[in-house]
Design a binder for these strands. Structure first.
Lengths: 226, 226
DNA sequence: ATTATCTATAGATCTATAGATAATGC
DNA sequence: ATTATCTATAGATCTATAGATAATGC
């Protein structure tokens, strides 16, 4: 229904054309999957948004599920890589004494910045990830693409809190990622609930609070001992 | 594919029969929607799981979306009511000096207990809620069914932290509900990520940590002042 | 000559409705 | 006599494939 971005028909090499069309398909699919989920979107919806025929999607992607996986994978490498770098940079800076809050800032702020500064397409990807994170298939894609960077975060947290039980570390991460996904989803619920005090789109507001909030949570579990 | 519970054909009054069939339809739909989402489930899937013909679903429910809404609504009143009672009980106990952690225990523990002790069907409902919470339609259903109890929680938190900014209160709640929904989803991700240290199904483990963790988060934001 | 895109279409499935049959109600 | 359930089917879509046409490559 909404008309996608119109292609300028100034075409260059075949490789470029191929690349360009594929990116447009992925952008459209990303937007639609974020809104309606894997099964709520038809290949025809995606094709219409791009302005091509449905069959072209089969030319570039084996089937619907492959397209879905490709949407997930395309930006996963970027966000994962950026966060990994940020964590390594923080680790180097902090030396012997990393803090929970420092590690969480590196992990969370880097990600929130990427989406917020990356424009509409990155925001779509964020919503896409959030939407699928609470599904069985989505969770498995997260295993594949995000385990290394998450385990890196956990490793730094473990050094910051050497006496904390392993289970506490992982449950703490579980709470962090839940809060993050709820943010990325941008459903507008917090806007309505708060009577307009908060806005789903306001990632800077989340960034200003989430690392400190979660760090205090970790410390309170650590204090408890067990 | 999986065969649903077989109906015992000892039928009583029509009202009872009607009630029983409707409940079976709702149970089956709840399970399937939790696994595959609104669009990932066909009416035929639901009918097959119950062991009736697809058209019977149209006899009891206007269309697919009405069935979906009915699934959400059926148990929403129960969980919402129980949490509201728990919050009011806590408010009465705490008198002039409610605490953040006390309010969160009332809100969160009551809910986790309901699902964990309610058996498989309640666990399905929890997964259903979690799955839809990150979608636009789901968030609107949450507005309708859960706003009163959430605003009650926020009101107690406000009394516990009278100097806290409104935005901080609501963002804090936003983090809490994200962590809760991630728990209810039970995707198995935390199991794999932690190498078996944590289990998605282990709501008691979450209950043992989440209120303290989140309370510390709230206090750290409040301390910040501004 | 190869690659990108479109046309035509098969085969399956999905939602929804109309009308028939089987079971309870009085 | 009314209500619960099933049969039959219409009409719309949806995914996927085969083969034709249009555009680039050399």
């Amino acid at each position: 229904m909404a008309d996608g971005p119109k292609t300028k028909r100034v075409r260059r090499t075949k490789a470029e054309q191929r690349e360009e069309t594929q990116e447009q398909i992925l952008d459209a699919a990303e937007y639609l999957f974020a809104q309606h989920g894997l099964h709520g979107v038809t290949l025809r919806d995606v094709a219409q948004r791009v302005g091509v025929h449905t069959t072209l999607l089969h030319y570039y992607f084996d089937d619907k599920r492959s397209l879905f996986d490709a949407v997930f994978a395309r930006r996963a490498a970027v966000t994962s890589g950026r966060r990994m770098e940020a964590l390594e940079r923080y680790e180097a800076e902090a030396g012997e004494r990393p803090t929970v809050e420092g590690a969480l800032h590196a992990f969370l702020d880097t990600d929130l910045d990427l989406y917020f500064e990356g424009g509409e397409l990155w925001m779509n990807y964020a919503a896409f990830c959030a939407r699928v994170s609470n599904t069985p298939e989505g969770a498995e894609l997260m295993d594949v693409h995000f385990d290394p960077v998450v385990l890196k975060l956990v490793a730094i947290l473990r050094r910051a809190l050497p006496d904390m039980a392993e289970a506490d570390l992982f449950w703490g991460y579980h709470f962090v990622t839940g809060a993050l996904m709820n943010t990325l989803a941008r459903t507008g619920r917090i806007d309505r609930l708060s009577g307009g005090v908060c806005h789903s789109d306001d990632f800077p507001a989340v960034k200003a609070r989430i690392a400190r909030f979660m760090a205090a949570g970790f410390l309170s579990l650590a204090q408890e001992g067990r």
